[in-house]
Simulated assay, not measured.
Amino acid sequence: MNFDPTEEQALAVESFRRFVERDIQPLTQPLCDAPYPKEIAHALLKKVMEFGVGNGWVPAEEGGCGLDFLSSGLLFETLARVAPDLAGIAWVTEGAALKIQETASPELKARYLPGLVAGDLIGCSAISEPGVGSNVRELRTKAVREGRHFRLNGEKMWTSNATIADIVTVLARTGEDDFTMFLLDRREHDFKTYEISKLGLNGWPLCQVVLEDVMVSEENVLGTVGRGLKEVMKGFERSRCFVSVLALGIGQAAFDAARTYALERHQFGKPIAGHQLVQSLLAQMATDLDASRLLVHRALWLMAAGRRCEMEAAMAKSFTTEAVQRVASNALQIHGAFGVTREFPVERHFRNARMLTIPDGTTQINHLIIGKNITNISAFA
């Protein structure tokens, strides 16, 4: 197997890295502690979409950049090293755009896809609910047909981007065991969104969505009535891969900060990088990152080849998000007392890394997915 990026990928990543450090980092650095304002999120999305971040999965003939998943992952990791909050906003918007590109009617696609791939619209996906947890089949949000419309009632939680989103795709129950995906437009549908305060990734909105008698036309169904759950489950492989990519970026940033500090900080007459125990920490961090990157790139390569990768995506997600926690913790340790202050970035990397073991299947849920693939026995009820 060849683990080297192609020349085209390497050139794209290097060009994007220079752009991010020059044009994105100065704008996003002051925005780490509170959700991005909507106008700023739009402006930043437009900048990174020029490189295919936020619109790369959509085919070029439909307005996107038509990137394969591995190339896209390399770009997202580059952005996540500097601005993981913006990378998250772009990733969720891109997921909504791909969902519309693949499942929307021609009319809906013509209405929303151009704005999504240009950064004029921000999207999100509302699936999780309070009290439901990892079993999507238990969701309680209902959509009751009334003629040519559906009446939606329910509450969604942990919905990224929702407070700044222009469109929301919502999964709702339309029968005993039938689920349907709907597209809601903030300008037309009276849903409410509320910000959730959280530990890390504070520039990336995480929200509650409340639906109270929201009337949605049947024309706003994505895909087929009753088949929405299948579409959602297809997206989990992609989501797990790209959560892992965000974690890789955060982990690499923590490692880079620790290495720089260890070379600059002197104790006992030499840089602390020359002390055995510090070198041991750096070695563990580098190994965790390399092992994670191999798992993530394998899953991305499988997706790019059009192959199923349920187990490989679960392995990448569960291992990488846990490994990056270790990396960030060790980076903080190398900084000593300075590591827990806000003078240095590692405390933020530590908080950001801790966020990513939860979404798109906790570590434990992903272990059950791996176990099911190994044994052909499901541990889920």
Rank of each mutant, 00 (worst) to 15 (best):
S128F: 15
L121S: 01
G66S: 05
G115Y: 08
C124I: 05
F150Y: 15
L67D: 02
L75S: 07
G54K: 01
R151C: 14
L75V: 14
L67F: 09
P84V: 15
L113P: 01
A126S: 14
L108D: 05
S160G: 08
K47Y: 10
C65V: 00
A80M: 05
T103M: 03
Q101I: 03
G133A: 15
F51V: 00
G54T: 05
S125G: 09
G95N: 08
A110V: 10
R111S: 13
R111A: 14
V144D: 07
T159A: 11
L79N: 01
G115R: 07
M157Q: 14
A97G: 02
N135M: 13
A43C: 12
T93C: 05
R145H: 09
A110Q: 15
A60L: 08
N153R: 13
G88Y: 03
A104M: 00
I89A: 04
R151M: 08
W91G: 02
G73W: 09
R148W: 11
P106T: 12
I89E: 00
K46L: 11
R137A: 12
R81M: 12
K47W: 04
L116Y: 01
G131E: 08
V58K: 00
R145G: 10
G147T: 09
D85W: 11
M49H: 04
A90K: 01
D120N: 13
Y112D: 08
P114R: 12
G63N: 02
G64W: 01
F51L: 06
V82E: 09
E155I: 11
V117P: 00
M157E: 12
I89S: 03
S72I: 06
I122C: 02
A43V: 09
C65T: 01
F150H: 10
G73N: 11
L139R: 07
N153Q: 12
G66R: 02
L113F: 01
E138V: 13
F150V: 13
A143L: 06
S72M: 14
L44V: 10
A96I: 03
T159V: 15
L79Y: 03
S125L: 13
G88I: 00
A83F: 02
S128E: 10
P114D: 13
I127F: 13
L108R: 07
A96Q: 01
P114H: 10
S160D: 02
A96Y: 01
P130C: 13
L152A: 13
G52Q: 07
V117E: 00
G131V: 06
D68L: 06
F76H: 09
E138S: 15
L67C: 06
T93K: 00
T103D: 03
E155C: 11
V136F: 15
R140L: 12
V82M: 05
L44Q: 06
L108P: 07
G147C: 09
L86S: 05
W158C: 08
T93E: 01
E102V: 07
K156D: 10
K99Q: 10
L70G: 06
A118R: 15
R81K: 15
L139C: 11
V82P: 03
Q101M: 08
A110E: 14
R81H: 06
G66Q: 01
W57N: 02
K156W: 07
G95L: 07
A110C: 13
